[in-house]
Amino acid sequence: MNQRKNKPVVGISIGDINGIGAEVTMKALMDNRIQKLVTPVIYAHGKAITFYRKQLEMDEFNFMQIRSVDEIHHKKINLINVVEDSPEVIPGVETQEAGKMALAALNHAIEDLKAGKIEALVTAPLNKNNINSGDLKFVGHTEYLTAAFDTKESLMFLVAEDIRVGIVTGHIPLKDIAQNVTPNNIKSKLNLMLKSLTDDFGIAKPRIAVLGLNPHAGEDGLLGDEEINIIQLVIREFKDKGHLVFGPYPADGFFGMMHQKKFDGVLAMYHDQGLIPFKSIAFETGVNFTAGLPIVRTSPDHGTAYNIAGKNVADEGSMRAAILQAYDVIRNRGNWEEEEDN
């Protein structure tokens, strides 16, 4: 149990400063509920935030620049400069300089997580294109953080009030999905989801729905045999162990009938099978949570949205939900005990 008397410290890596990350971060942190529960630290550069403060006419947004989390002020919004000179901010434009700062922000936050200086990380959206270089193949926050913390396996877990969706296969080409829907992969993701629902979300006996891979969940082998030869066998194995795991369900009918409300979690076989319905249902309040990591990481469920960057129209609901979800997971894991007056 954390023995500090102040609020838990939540880091926010700014992502691509030419996207909407700065805007939704600033708007979310203006919510008094956030500042009452956590102490935020933005990993960015003061000049970039000052640019948006003026651009968005958010004169009431104030922050304190610190050199490290050791200098943190628990009654203020804190900011750490992750690069010596801030790159030029050009809303809506992809630049290599913005990519370098996004990666620097993420790496600095990871260092502080490993040192135990912050309790959670919320990652604002970045652009993979301007991060990738000859030395680095960046396919996503989930994979990058999984490698950074030397974790064998993690689960991309999209969560909102009425729906939680995890995926067996993540950022891989569509043509490679079937060969990666294996018994071991499904078992691994199911175990991660069960543990996360229990430890991170406080659900004692979670109910999980498993989707099929093929249309109509294979139609009894007519449209594919993965459901019969792989998915059903895994589900039976988990049921025999006493877990409440059901399926496989046809994805279209399952979400069309809103059956996700009957379950604590839904395991989809691939990225779009799970994320399209999730974002259709909870785009403005959804949170991307990485289950299976030794640290707490959440993110809004949207991208950089270059087309609306700097126009003061971005909705901060998902970012606010990501910060609040990080706080909830910190508490559910037992890493923080609230003071009686908080």
Rank of each mutant, 00 (worst) to 15 (best):
L213I: 13
D272W: 10
D240L: 14
L197W: 14
E161T: 14
E161W: 04
A291M: 12
E226T: 11
S188T: 15
V168H: 03
P183Y: 13
D240W: 02
V181Y: 01
K152Q: 12
I163L: 14
E284G: 08
L174W: 06
Y270I: 13
L223H: 04
D240T: 09
P248D: 06
E153R: 12
R207P: 01
R164L: 05
A291P: 07
M269S: 08
V181N: 02
G224F: 12
K241G: 00
F254C: 10
Q179H: 04
T182V: 08
K195R: 09
G256T: 04
A204N: 09
L158M: 15
G256R: 10
A291D: 05
V266M: 03
N180K: 12
L233E: 15
R207V: 04
I228M: 08
F289N: 02
A204C: 08
L233K: 15
E227F: 02
M258V: 13
E284N: 15
N184I: 14
F278A: 03
G221Q: 11
E219A: 12
S154E: 06
A282L: 03
P250E: 12
F157P: 04
G202E: 08
L267C: 11
L244P: 00
V210C: 01
M257H: 03
D200F: 11
A204L: 14
G166Y: 01
V159K: 06
L197H: 09
G166H: 00
H243T: 11
F238G: 05
K241Q: 12
